[in-house]
Structure formats: C-alpha cells, structure tokens
C-alpha cells in the first residue's frame, strides 16, 4: 500500500498586516509583542524537518511584512521542505516576486474575497482587489504557481460565479473556498455569516461553479468546513475526480497538520482558537515533545474507539456519519459554541432538517473579547420552516441573490449526485 499523506505546517511568521479584514480570525494588524527572532525561526525550521513536516505555508498577518521572511523561506527550502505562502497580495511587486522565486517559494495562494467592491469592503482597503490581481500577474511573470482562496459568506456568496471567472482569467490553477466563521473580527460581524439553513441554496450554486472550474482546469479545493455528505460531496471534495471515497473523513488537526503562531505557540491546526488549543510554546519545549505529549494536539487520536466520538453532542452525536465525521471541522464548531462536537454548518444536516420541515439558525449570545484567534458564543435555534425569519436582515442569502453572468446561461445546473447515479 503506497503512502501518500503529507504532513504540513501553516506558520504565521508575523501578525503585522497591511489590510484590515472584517473577517480576520487573528485580528491581524500590529505585530505580536514577542514574535520569534530570526535565530529562533531558523531553529524552528530545523525542528519541523526533524518531526516529519514536508511542507510549510507562510502566512501572516501579511508574511512579507516581516523583514527576514525570504531568509526563512530559503531556510525551509534548504531543509528539504516545500515552501508556500498565503497572501493578501497587497504589495508584491515584480521585483519581490523574483526574490520569492529565488528563495524557493513554490506556490502562492492569493486571497480574493469578492468582486472589487466587496473585496475592498471586506479587506478594509480600497485598491486591494486591483493590487491582488497585479500580484498574480507578477507571480505568473516569474513562473511561480499560484491559486486563490476565498471566504464564503453572505457578501461573497452571491458573487461566486463571477469571482470564479475573474480568477480563472487571471491564471489561477487552484481555488480554495472556506466558510467564514465567527473567530476574531468575524465574531464582531456576525451579520455577514451564512446561516445553516442558507446552505440549502449555497451548495447547488457551489456545485455548478465547481463543475465548470474542473472542466476549465481550475482545481476547486473545498476547505475543511465545506461539506458534509450532501449530494455534491464527492464533486466538491474530489478535486475534479469524484472518486467513490471522495468524502469528508474527519478533522485532521494534530494528525498531519500543525499551526504555528508568530510568538511560537503550537496548535494542531492554524485556525483553532489560541486559548483552548495551544499545546505549548517552542520557547519552552521542543517541537517533538509538544506533538508527542500535549493533549491539545492529541484530541483527534482514538477514532474508532468510544474516545473518538465522546466529544459529540446535539445533532452530530446521533448522526449516521458520526464515527467517521466526528463533528466536522473542530474550529467551526468551537467558535460558534465555545466547544467542538456539534456543527450545524453541514449540508446533510440542513437537508435532514428541511425534510422534517425544520431549519437551524444561529444567534450571537456572548461577545468575543477582542483578542487574536478568540471567539464568542452563539445560541442554536431549531425551528419549523414556516416560522417567519427575523425582520431587518438585509444580507439574508437565497438562490435569488446569486449573480450569474451571461456566460453561465450555457451551463446547466448540477442536479445530479454521483451517489445516486
């Protein structure tokens, strides 16, 4: 049996940022008070290689605002690990792109969170959309492979078909989509979050866009909080191949993934809240000790035993996929309810409720404190679908909200499911 899985780390090398995104989970802007020194960063690179990390993605904040970022990229490359980067793209000149190529950065993901007005609004900077596309042209010119990543929320979802056309035309090879969830700044802007019952209109649209993307050579990559087990699961998670086993197989935090914060905090996944999921700091313990011993990085071990599902509650506890799914994305569940194990952002779940004449929605209950990677708490409401939704909700998402440009008129809706064919 060939072994294909890779282990990778997502490393926030600085929290300093030149954008001010209203959905930013880390509330990036100013650098952290005690970010790792260059020497400490080089030592961490060495330790990552020793524990079996194969690939490192540099993020921020904005990674290129750290003066030694290209030295770190070069060190990662020289240690035998692949180095990639995720960026807001606000300020990568052609000269910088050439330096990135020389430092060994193999791939870049540029954040595009809507069409121009929406992107600039969400990212808090007029002109950031135009510069992101300029960055992509620079990457293309120097020959660095690039893709895009997009937050899926009530502002961006209506524009998804048009966003796709823009990034395809820019030459993006891949497109990762991720649901906006209430961590950090997004916790203070709950009105932009999709509601669980709105997934019923989101997923048919995503499937239609995904199918066209695959046909036109753009690999759509469903993030870990996209899913689960609905009629389009294999299409969305199969990266164009629709293999019979292309479906969600549980949270991978601490199994193949590490998240590293700029001050040396180690988590099992870069998205997880700092307070509840930090296993230790690289300044206090060796990386291999943290991975081996910290309970915060071991919570996904024990699948297939009672230990593997004991954290589940609510709908997820009784779901027929529970043993494999284990509550979907831990980050998503935690930032809504301050504990993992029950995730209403699930297509299968929304469909199940709809068949019973019910729907779910979330309402803010406890505010977040205002720290990086923090979360508040939401109340989960399950109600009959004939109950009138709250008034004064101008961002409410429906299928009618979606903007299909003329080119989509030739594209049939995706009404099939591989599972049923």
């Amino acid at each position: 049996m060939t072994y294909h899985r890779k282990s990778y780390a997502v490393w926030e090398i600085t929290l300093k940022c030149n954008l001010a995104c209203s959905h930013c989970g880390s509330r990036a802007g100013h650098e952290r008070t005690k970010e790792l020194s260059t020497e400490e960063a080089f030592d961490l690179v060495k330790q990552m290689a020793e524990v079996g990390i194969k690939e490192v993605t540099l993020i921020g904040g904005e990674a290129f605002l750290r003066p030694d970022w290209l030295e770190i990229a070069k060190a990662i490359n020289e240690a035998g690990m692949l180095c990639g980067m995720t960026t807001g793209g606000y300020g990568i000149s052609l000269e910088t792109a050439q330096k990135m190529k020389s430092a060994g950065i193999r791939s870049v993901s540029v954040s595009i969170d809507g069409l121009e007005a929406t992107h600039d609004r969400l990212r808090g900077k007029k002109g950031s959309w135009k510069y992101a596309f300029k960055t992509m042209s620079h990457l293309r010119e120097v020959g660095i492979y690039f893709g895009c990543n997009t937050q899926l929320n009530r502002l961006s979802a209506p524009e998804f078909p048009c966003i796709y056309e823009c990034i395809r035309d820019a030459g993006a090879g891949a497109w990762q989509i991720q649901m906006t969830v209430p961590m950090g700044n997004a916790a203070d802007n709950a009105d932009i979050l999709l509601q669980p019952h709105e997934l019923l209109d989101v997923y048919p649209m995503l499937a239609r866009v995904a199918r066209r993307a695959y046909q036109e050579g753009v690999q759509l990559q469903a993030g870990n909080n996209i899913g689960y087990y609905g009629p389009y699961e294999r299409l969305l998670r199969g990266r164009g191949k629709e293999d019979e086993f292309s479906f969600w197989q549980g949270c991978g935090a601490g199994l193949s993934t590490l998240g590293i914060e700029a001050d040396g905090a180690i988590k099992g996944c870069p998205s997880l809240p700092t307070t509840a999921y930090t296993g230790g700091n690289i300044r206090d313990h060796a990386l291999h000790e943290i991975i081996k011993s910290a309970e915060e990085l071991r919570f996904n071990l024990g699948a297939g035993t009672p230990e593997g599902t004991k954290h589940l509650w609510g709908f997820c506890k009784t779901c027929e996929y529970a043993e494999l799914c284990r509550g979907g994305c831990s980050w998503t569940a935690h930032v809504f309810f301050d504990k993992r194990g029950n995730n209403p952002y699930c297509h299968h779940r929304a469909l199940t409720h709809a068949e019973q004449g019910m729907r779910e929605r979330v309402v803010p209950k406890v505010k977040a404190q205002g720290l990086p990677f923090d979360n508040g708490e939401f109340e989960l409401i399950v109600e009959p679908t004939d109950v009138v939704l709250p008034a004064n909700d101008p961002l409410h998402f429906t299928a009618d909200s979606i903007q299909w440009s003329e080119s989509w008129q030739q594209e049939p809706e995706v009404s099939y499911s591989l599972a049923r064919s």
Binding site: S7, G52, I53, R234, F247, H288, I291, E320, L324, R420
Partner: peptide, 12 residues
Amino acid sequence: PLLPRSAAVLES
C-alpha cells in the same frame, strides 16, 4: 515517528 499520524450510507 511523529507526523503524520493516524486518528459511510452516502444510498442517500
């Protein structure tokens, strides 16, 4: 020795 480590109806 450390990473990566190891830790389904879809008739629907």
